[in-house]
Simulated scan of single mutants.
Amino acid sequence: MDINNASAPAPLRVAVIVGSNREGRFAPVIRDWFLSRTEDFGGFEVDVVDVAEAELPTALSFNPSDAVKAELGKVSGRLAAADAFVVLTPEYNHSYPAGLKNLIDWHGPEWHAKPVGFVSYGGLSGGLRSVEHLRQVFAELHAVTLRDTVSFHGPWGQFDADGQHLDPESANTAAKALLDKLSWWAHALRDAKTVRPFSA
């Protein structure tokens, strides 16, 4: 095969999931910073899925009403279309937010055989305890979680009023490492599924 004439692979579709819906949340600052990192990295088509905009009921049902199906329809297709996910999560009480768990639990096949990266923030732990809990959840959903993460320890003093990181070198390096691995796994799993469809 002439590699000079080989067509470039299609861009990877990445759903960036904003996991906090708390009033006054810091999540938009982290979201905007991370999106700028994906733009610099290239090769991604990014879709932001925000739990604050997904009005899903907290009571799960095997037979959801038409109203619930309509709300699910606003999110489910976007998750299904994604080749990979990045979850932005704070840490609440040593774990991740209830709204994020709700979004995850309303879906199943949408997560299967896809990589999941994490960007976390919080106090001294930088949100890493929420990430460790999420790894168990996504393992049950046949997703592949990445070892490399981005974590912000006490992020409230790390950004200026315009959302610019005051000392970005370490965070930018961590983001590049995460995106490198996300790209590798997303390409590998997408290619594998064209040869052998995944079955849970």
Rank of each mutant, 00 (worst) to 15 (best):
V195L: 15
T173W: 01
E39V: 14
K74S: 06
R196K: 15
A139M: 13
G126L: 05
A113V: 12
P97I: 01
R78C: 10
L141C: 03
T149M: 10
E45A: 10
G42H: 07
G157D: 14
V48W: 10
E39I: 13
P168N: 00
R196M: 14
S125M: 06
E53G: 07
F26M: 03
V137H: 13
G117E: 03
F34S: 06
V46S: 01
P168K: 03
G154T: 01
H107Y: 11
R147S: 14
T194C: 10
F85Y: 10
V87H: 09
D180M: 14
R13Q: 07
A171D: 07
L178H: 01
A15H: 04
S36F: 05
G42V: 07
V87K: 08
R147I: 11
A143F: 09
P64T: 09
A186N: 09
K114A: 09
S61M: 12
L12F: 00
D83L: 07
W184E: 14
S183Q: 15
A8P: 00
S7L: 14
A70F: 12
F85A: 04
S199F: 13
P90N: 00
G43K: 10
L56E: 07
A59G: 11
I104V: 06
S151N: 00
A143D: 11
T149S: 13
P197E: 00
A186T: 08
G42A: 06
A98Y: 06
F26K: 04
E132F: 15
E45N: 11
A175F: 04
G127W: 04
I3H: 15
V137W: 13
F198C: 08
I104M: 01
F44N: 07
A200V: 12
G42P: 06
L179S: 02
V131C: 06
R196I: 11
F85K: 08
S95Y: 14
G19A: 01
W111Q: 02
N63Q: 14
D66M: 12
A186D: 05
G108Y: 15
G73K: 09
A113G: 09
A52L: 08
P11D: 09
L12N: 04
A98S: 11
S7P: 12
E91K: 03
S36Q: 15
N4C: 11
E91A: 05
A98P: 03
R37Q: 08
S170W: 09
G123Q: 06
V86G: 00
A81N: 07
A70N: 12
H165G: 11
V16E: 02
D32I: 02
W185N: 12
A200C: 07
A6V: 12
F44W: 00
A177W: 12
P11E: 06
V116W: 02
H133A: 08
A6M: 13
R37H: 06
R22M: 06
R196E: 11
P97E: 05
A113H: 15
V195R: 15
P97Y: 02
N5S: 11
L166Y: 02
K69G: 05
A84Q: 03
S36Y: 06
L35I: 00
L12Q: 10
L100I: 10
F44D: 07
L60G: 04
A174S: 08
A8Q: 10
